[in-house]
Structures are given as C-alpha cells and as structure tokens.
Design a protein around this nucleic acid. Structure first.
Lengths: 200, 200
DNA sequence: TTGAATTTCATCCGATTGGATGAAGTATCC
DNA sequence: GGATACTTCATCCAATCGGATGAAATTCAA
C-alpha cells in the first residue's frame, strides 16, 4: 500500500530530509535526482505514483516545463517543492499547473496531507477525464490500439484535432486517421457521438 | 483581501471553534448554518469565496449531494469537515468530489493550508476569479465595459467564439463585436495577442 | 521474410472559424 | 430632446476545421 515516490531536488540536505520524512510516512522513495535531464531520462523506467520536485530545478528544462511534461506525457501527479518566501514562483506554479501543489517549510504532517491531496486529485481526475483503456474496450466491446486510445482520451477532453496533433507531435492527418478508425470501430459518424458513447 | 467563508455544520461547538479559528486566520465568516436546506436557501444571496461544510450535515440533501450542487450550480470551492476516524465517509468524499477536501482534527495551520489549496484549485478551474477587472484595466490602462470584461474572461479560458456566445446567450456576432472593441482598446490584432497581453 | 496490423501523412471538400465592416436597438446622462 | 456609450446583430471573406478517401512507412508476429 506504500506509494512509490521520486524526488527531484538539487539541494542535498533537503533531498535527504525529504527522503527520511517520506520513508517514515510509509512512502517508498524509488530514486532521487539532482537535475531535470537525468530525471527525464529515467522517468520512463521508474513508475512512481507521485513525484516531488523542486520548481527551481537545474537542467535544460524549467520546473514549469518539466511539470507540463510530467502532466501531459506521463500523467503522474506531482508536488512542487519551494520555499515559503518564494511567492513569485508559487504564483507562477499556481497559474501554470492546476494539479501541482506547493510545499512550504517541511513538516511531516504538511507533506503527508499535501501528498494525499495530490493523490486524491489525481485519482478523481483520472476517474473523470482520463479514460481507462480496458474499461472502454470492455464497455464498447472493441479493441483499441495505443494511439487510438490516446487520441480518444485527448478527444474526450474536448481538444480539437489540431490540439491533439500538437500534443502528440504528429500531423493533423494522423489524428484524423485514428479518429476515422475509432468511428468505424465504435460505429459512429463523428466525434460528438464517439464521446457520447464513451462517456455513456 | 480577507476571503469570505460560509460554514455548514450542525454541531454548535465545532461551528464556534471553526469560526474562531477562521477569523483569527483573517477569513470573514459570513454565516453559519445548521442544516442543508437553510444553507441552500441563503446561498444565492451570500457570495462566499469558499464553503466549509460537514459531510454528514442534516437536511434533505446528503453532504455529497450538497457538494455536487455547490460545485455544479454555484461553482464555489468547498472543504469537507469530517472527523479523523470517519474513514468511510472520507473515502466516499474522495471518490465523489474531485475538488472537495477533507479536514481532519482542527489545527489552524491545517485549515489554512487546506483552504488555500482549495482556493488555488478553484482559481485555476474558474479562471474568471483570477481575471480581476480592475487589475486588468489598470495594467492595460483601459476601461472595460461589463460585457467586454466577461467576454475577455471567457476568451482567456480558451473558449471559441461559438462557445462564448452559447455561454452568454447571445449571438456569435455580438461576441465578435466585443472582441473587436477589445482588440482596438488593447491595441492588438487578434485573440491570441489579446490573451498574451492580459496574462502578461 | 512475408503479411497483417499499426502508425504516419497528403489531398479534396463542405462546414465552420475568426476577423472586418456596417448598422440597429437600448440605455444613460446633460 | 439630443449626444453618448453600450449592447446587439447581419453580411462578407480568407483561413481553418472536421471528415472521407487513398496510400506510404513502420512494427511485429508467424
């Protein structure tokens, strides 16, 4: 039942402090990283339930950029680490990241509560808008390819074809093909009826 | 700057305790209710920034139902109040309510943090509350009409003209006119540059 | 290595988009 | 009453959208 955690934080002292607290709270710290590039390399292998990372992390990506990658490509909930006094950064994080949370000074109870909330949110978020592949396949009695599933997920979030294409780094034509195949598999004529069927 | 709060809690002792803590934290407690019906009657008049309510509130609606009404019809962020030991209720709340949070035993710091998080979330969900009319007028050194402000708010949430029109119950032409006037006032050519200027 | 499944992209077309222009109806204040 | 600002709507147009069709490139199991 212990959740797997990954930490991205360049200050050694804080990193060690976090590890200690998290282990004490029953979380399993899979790995700690000192910069964003290393983290992005290893992330596909590690499959953390939640990520804590410094919003001012060093590396080729800013903390916000990193958060967007984690959110959009990996869909792993995360928590920002930042100092209490760093109000500008906190505000930037708030605006940019609806699902990221800010930890203030380290207190076991705070950390646990914030992480619980992040995990709650992620769970209910996935419940609502991130579709479960197996469940859909079973419900509609079809089999989805990986790309079709992702395209369907993006579509059911209300994204336009061009937005889906940008998000997946493919051309708009590719998206249209996946949609066409989805229409055929599900037996609908257009995107609206597809989403209707998927969402019951 | 103090946020307006409404409390729905049937136990007098807890209610008073909450009021004291919240006032101490700088929140303004607009009103306290003992049951859900009374609360629903008065809610349209009061315009709280956030609502705290007991998940086991008495009345014709259950706490979860009440939360759904608050979320879907009034779009006001809220926080659940429940006892630490009430694990089943907490779990039910988690599943049902993506934006509701659970307060355990009362500790000033906990309450403040949870409420801040709830408000953050609400803010990033309903970006309207982030887009403050006066602030924009001052920043861009222009004066906005009511309709222009609402249109700008909707636009900055990424809505299409047709969606804005549907939301405001006007024709798409009306929306276009407001946008045209906004472009002229702000001195931009199109919607993208408008939003860029507004969001810095 | 052959073949099927998957992923990718181009082209065509009717419908819709955002934006430009013009203008009518409605308040509101001198 | 008239001037002013605000809100509403219609029409035109180039650009883009979603969808239909066809077809390469890639992956992968038989």
């Amino acid at each position: 039942m212990g959740q797997n955690v990954v930490i991205v934080e360049d200050e050694l002292l804080i990193r060690k402090q976090l590890e200690t607290i998290l282990r004490k709270l029953g979380y399993e710290v899979l790995c700690s990283f000192q910069n964003s590039d290393e983290f992005l390399d290893r992330l596909p292998d590690l499959k953390p339930d939640i990520i804590l990372f410094d919003i001012n992390i060093k590396g080729s990506q800013s903390g916000i950029q990193l958060a967007q990658i984690v959110r959009d490509q990996y869909r792993i909930p995360f928590v920002f680490i930042t100092s209490y006094t760093d109000r500008d950064t906190i505000n930037a994080a708030k605006v940019t990241m609806p699902n990221g949370y800010v930890i203030k000074p380290f207190d076991e109870k705070d950390i646990m509560m914030i992480m619980e909330i992040a995990l709650y949110n992620a769970a209910s978020f996935q419940e609502e808008s991130i579709l479960n592949k197996q469940r859909i396949e079973k419900k509609l009695n079809i089999s989805l390819t990986e790309r079709e599933y992702i395209t369907l997920s993006d579509l059911s979030q209300g994204l336009a074809n061009s937005q889906i294409a940008a998000k997946q780094y493919v051309s708009i034509n590719t998206v249209k093909t996946h949609l066409r195949n989805l229409y055929a598999k599900v037996g609908v004529r257009d995107r609206v009826n597809l989403v209707k069927k998927v969402l019951q």
